[in-house]
Amino acid sequence: MTAVPLSILDLATVDHGGNIAEALRHSVELARTAEALGYERMWYAEHHNMSSIASSATSVLIAHIASQTERIRLGSAGIMLPNHSPLVIAEQFGTLATLHPNRIDLGLGRAPGTDGATFRALRRTHQASDNFPNDVVELQKYLGTDIASTAVNAYPGRGTNVPLTILGSSLFGANLAAQLGLPYGFASHFAPEALTTAVAHYRANFRPSEQLEKPYVLAGVNVVAAATDEEAEAQFTRGELERVRKFLSRGREVELTLDQAGELYDTPAGQQIRDMLRYTAIGGPERVIDELDAFARHADADELILAFAAPTHAERLAGARIVASPKS
């Protein structure tokens, strides 16, 4: 493996031509494989109204994966807190932590994780994002023991002290994580622009807390690993095209075909989507590890969150094995 611990971000991806039930079975298989291979943890993200992502009910998916595994840590990367009451999230993750002690992590994001119409369908307002810092503090209190027993408490939740991580792609999240003394996860796997600036700000302004004595940075990076460099490059090209197809199919009654996506590949919209993949480690066993180590140094990261970006589950699973055991 690499010089830093590795985690995996699993979006419960619905492969082209597949279905949601299949995607959820794939998530179980990936988590079991990651556990056997020694990955640090699995992360699951809250996204809504995306037909290719099956992780919208994030806490439910984590509960299912936890019941199908034994040791690996499981977390949200993240729960989009503006979509929820802090009390409800404390109850959900307090339940998870009670059922699966010392295995649950709670990553929190400020974005809605969806489009405007779906945000309204969630019955939230844009002002909810403005309350994010206060909501994080409120959630932290529900998971602790400082609230009087005569006040509103989270049951389950109280006293579980589920570890929190602030997720983001800007100085806002970096600053909040630093001020609260929490780990900071940067979403460089899809929003690469401010990575080094945000991490430097976080480290320079970090204040120790009961949860964390010194800064801890997690950085997202896409990975395409295969038996050879050439095979990995080919998988990346196919995966990049599939990503363009999925993104530009949103809001359409009928999804684009791969040929239609190919026609949009070099358009400004296509290029914008491809630019999201700036931080991608691509290669055979030796090259991909070298690229991951180089990225960890560039990001000044203590842990990497790997988003396997090959177009099929079988290829993503094989990539996870190659990264964990590059010499096997």
Score class of each variant (00 low, 15 high):
Asp290Ser: 14
Glu253Tyr: 05
Gly107Phe: 12
Glu315Tyr: 13
Glu40Leu: 09
Glu138Lys: 06
Gln272Lys: 12
Leu9Asn: 07
Lys327Ser: 15
Ala57Trp: 05
Thr13Trp: 14
Pro86Arg: 03
Glu291Ile: 00
Leu37Arg: 06
Pro183Arg: 03
Gln179Ala: 12
Leu306Val: 07
Ala77Met: 07
Ala187Arg: 00
Ile8Ser: 03
Asn83Gly: 10
Ile322Gln: 11
Glu29Cys: 03
His84Lys: 01
His298Lys: 13
Ile72Arg: 05
Leu9Glu: 04
Gly157Val: 01
Asn161Cys: 10
Asp266Arg: 01
Ala219Phe: 11
Lys141Cys: 08
Asp293Ala: 04
Glu210Thr: 15
Leu81Tyr: 15
Leu317Arg: 15
Thr95Leu: 09
Phe119Trp: 15
Asp115Lys: 00
Ser188Arg: 07
Ala187Pro: 03
Leu180Met: 09
Val221Met: 05
Ser59Cys: 13
Ile65Gly: 03
Leu171Lys: 07
Pro163Thr: 01
Gly94Val: 08
Tyr155Asn: 01
Glu303Gly: 07
Glu291Leu: 14
Glu242Tyr: 06
Leu248Ala: 12
Ala219Cys: 09
Lys214Asp: 12
Ile166Cys: 03
His26Asp: 15
Val162Ala: 06
Arg71Gln: 13
Ala318Pro: 00
Phe190Asp: 09
Gln260Leu: 05
Ala174Pro: 06
Asn134Gly: 14
Phe186Arg: 00
Ala178Cys: 07
Phe308Asp: 11
Asp293Pro: 05
Leu108Met: 08
Arg124Phe: 06
Asn49Asp: 15
Pro208Trp: 08
Ser27Ile: 00
Pro82Ser: 04
Thr125Ala: 14
Thr237Asn: 12
Asp266Gln: 10
Asp130Arg: 06
Ser59Lys: 04
Ala318Asn: 14
Asp115Gln: 02
Gln68Asn: 08
His298Leu: 15
Val136Asn: 03
Ala90Gly: 05
Ile72Ala: 12
Met42Pro: 11
Gly109Gln: 02
Glu233Phe: 10
Tyr44Asp: 03
Ala151Val: 01
Arg321Val: 10
Glu29Gln: 13
Ser170Pro: 08
Gly113Ala: 13
Pro183Lys: 05
Val254Arg: 10
Glu230Gly: 06
Gly159Thr: 02
Asn175Ala: 05
Arg245Thr: 07
Ser27Ala: 12
Leu9Met: 09
Glu70Thr: 11
Ala12Phe: 08
Leu87Trp: 09
Met1Tyr: 06
Ala63Val: 02
Ala307Asn: 11
Leu11Arg: 04
Met276Lys: 02
Phe93Glu: 03
Ser51Ala: 15
Ser59Trp: 14
Leu106Thr: 03
Leu248Ser: 12
Leu106Met: 13
Val223His: 05
Gly75Leu: 01
